[in-house]
């Protein structure tokens, strides 16, 4: 997969959210996004996910223009903002319902992913009874379970304890080895330094390459 963000500017209600952003992203790489709150990290993720359209410029995925040739990247898992699921269902049931939309994976794969993020598939608790950390793990499981080619994770380590962070970092590394293109926004510089192959700093909607591993 090759994603090209070509001179994209996004304005919302007169405010410039992304300012002439250009990036090229390739499979098998973890890209880190760093910036203060409101700098445009989440908007850049929404842009790549096809959830927002550029005011000017374009995003192409393997040569196809996002928003014109295709609405969403074909194979994508994402965690943006707080993970939100159906309150009245268990984590397993929530993922089962999600997986049914594409129909690509079955119960064994879902259970395996739940175990990988540190949740018990047989946990009878409903989502509304989950702790913040459990909700975050479920959100990550939803993003990873279908083994997507593109993974967008916005602050995936929020609300996780040290063991949880280590587990998620290991999963991200494994996904990179599998060949996934991963975009990771994280306020914790040390996590980004340890995971990302390339780190970009975003400030007031402008992007600058900061470091390469």
């Amino acid at each position: 997969m090759r994603i090209v963000i070509d001179h994209v500017t996004k304005t919302i209600k007169g405010a410039v959210i992304l300012d002439d952003v250009s990036l090229t992203l390739r499979s098998g790489t973890v890209y880190g996004l760093q910036g203060v709150n409101g700098s445009g990290k989440t908007m850049l993720m929404r842009l790549i996910a096809g959830l927002i359209r550029p005011t000017s410029g374009k995003v192409t995925i393997d040569g196809k223009i996002l928003g014109k040739d295709l609405d969403f990247p074909g194979s994508m898992g994402l965690l943006i903002e707080n993970p939100a699921f159906l309150d009245g269902h268990t984590g397993l049931k929530n993922l089962e319902l999600l997986a049914q939309i594409k129909g690509e994976i079955g119960l064994p794969q879902i259970k395996e992913t739940l175990r990988e993020v540190g949740l018990k598939p047989e946990d009878p608790r409903k989502f509304k009874k989950y702790s913040l950390g459990m909700k975050q793990r479920l959100g990550i499981a939803a993003a990873l379970m279908e083994k997507p080619d593109l993974i967008l994770l916005d602050e995936p380590t929020n609300a996780l304890d040290d063991r949880g962070v280590a587990r998620i970092c290991a999963l991200i590394r494994r996904e990179r080895e599998r060949g996934a293109l991963i975009v990771l926004a994280c306020h914790d510089a040390s996590i980004l330094e340890g995971l990302a192959d390339e780190i970009y700093k975003i400030s007031e909607g402008k992007i600058e390459k900061r470091a390469a591993r």
Partner: peptide
Amino acid sequence: LSNSGLQIIVRCETKR
């Protein structure tokens, strides 16, 4: 959209 809809919509091929 503010619940599981965001996860659903990206699994649809089109917004339509």
